[in-house]
Computed example of a mutant assay.
Amino acid sequence: MGLSPEPKWETMMTEFKAYAAIEAGGTLEPFTYDPGPIAADEVEIKILASGLCHSDISMINNDWRASQYPLVPGHEVIGEVVAVGDDVSHLSVGQNVGVGWTSHSCLHCSPCLSGRQQRCQTGTTTIGGHGGFADRIRVQHVWAVPLPDGIDLQSAGPLFCGGITVFAPFLDFDLKPTDRVGIIGIGGLGHLAVQFANAWGCEVTAFTSSMDKEAELTELGAHRIVNSRDDAAIKAEAGYFDFILTTVNVSLNWPLYLSALRPNGKLITVGVVPEPMGIPAFPLIGGQRVVSGSDTGPPDMVAKMLEFCVRHDIKPMIETFPMAECNTAIKRLKSGEARYRIVLEN
């Protein structure tokens, strides 16, 4: 009788320990759940750290009317593979991986087949299937992106949402190293966008309402700084930029920022602005300017971003909390005092 093949897992957990909101707007409470048998295309990850994002708060509060409870937040997961399904051959137990906004996709629809799996219409968000504020998580293998050598494990989590959210538009909208780039809002997203744009070779202008950040922004890579609350200062930038990326979730004077674009310039929003954006037609027609939005990115783009970060020593500025202090961390993020991303550690 031949020997049985080696199992492809370290140990199978039948109960995951997490922190969940039981109702909309509720504080997070200890929560356990049984994930069931691991699927053939899934991996199980022991969570080392999970970033805290404003999107987690939006989901906890059901701001987007898509939340289901109990809801385990967390979609910036860093961890170690501890089990793999029968069909998974490219990941192995002990490997460090990260997981972002998406946890499953169909892999056969048009977006999936064209390499934009994050836009799968039947996909599952990581939070939708119980997220990273836990000791373990299960995801489809394609969404467990291997971490490159040299990356800082403690701070890598926010790259899987905040990082890819601002990195993807650079590729999708053909940013060139000769471009003049404006970044609106220097917070959790914007401070990464400044670093990316500088490393890309662009001239980088930071639009911020906190002019006390000037020295810090210069250190991050901004060449110019403009007060985003000073309409006259923004007006003085007329026709200057090839590309403006807005990371804020509040309404702005959109016609003024459109006027700051050169002909064929692009204004891209990654912030979820609650009100309709009032975009005048004439600046679009007269200069063939573009206004668009961007989501996250597919796994291969995430992998490229991680390599770019290692190559250029780009990392988010973080504050850390124990996972058990998740409610304290949420209060810290809501206060606006976090500089700039919060990471919960197991």
Rank of each mutant, 00 (worst) to 15 (best):
L189E: 01
I137M: 03
G94P: 07
H191D: 09
T102Y: 12
L52V: 10
P73Q: 01
T178C: 12
N62D: 13
N253W: 06
Q68P: 03
L258T: 05
V93Q: 08
S294K: 08
P177I: 10
Q121A: 13
E275W: 06
I186P: 00
I318K: 01
H223T: 14
F170A: 11
V139P: 05
R224E: 14
A197T: 09
M277L: 15
A21D: 00
S103C: 12
D212Y: 11
K8R: 12
V226K: 07
F160Y: 07
D135Q: 13
L91S: 09
V43F: 09
T208Q: 05
L192V: 07
S92W: 12
N96S: 13
H130C: 04
E219W: 01
A206P: 07
R180D: 15
G239Q: 09
V81Y: 08
G163P: 02
T125H: 10
I47R: 02
S251W: 04
M301H: 14
C106R: 12
P146A: 02
D313C: 03
V226A: 09
I244K: 10
G185D: 00
E216I: 10
F167D: 04
H141R: 15
V250A: 11
T178A: 15
L107K: 15
R229Q: 13
V250D: 06
L48E: 10
P7K: 15
L333G: 02
N61L: 00
V97N: 03
Q121G: 14
A232F: 08
E23L: 03
G129T: 14
F308Q: 02
D86P: 08
N227R: 06
V181W: 06
G157H: 00
I78P: 03
Y257R: 08
P35A: 10
E275M: 05
I137R: 03
G187F: 01
F308T: 00
Y33K: 08
A303Y: 04
G51H: 04
P299Q: 09
E275K: 10
A144K: 04
T122F: 13
G297K: 10
K331N: 14
E319M: 09
V302P: 03
A206S: 14
I268C: 08
L3V: 12
L91K: 11
D86Q: 14
G150V: 05
K315M: 04
A238R: 15
S89T: 14
A238N: 13
P111E: 10
Q195F: 01
K235F: 11
L48W: 03
D295L: 15
P276H: 11
Y69S: 00
S335I: 02
C106V: 12
C161Q: 03
T178Y: 13
V166T: 03
N346P: 14
P73S: 06
V270M: 04
A168M: 07
V291L: 01
G336P: 01
K334G: 04
G51L: 01
A232M: 11
I225C: 10
V43I: 13
Q154P: 01
L147R: 03
T124S: 14
R289D: 01
L113P: 06
G287M: 05
G278W: 02
H191V: 07
G150Y: 02
D242G: 11
P30K: 10
P5I: 10
E203N: 12
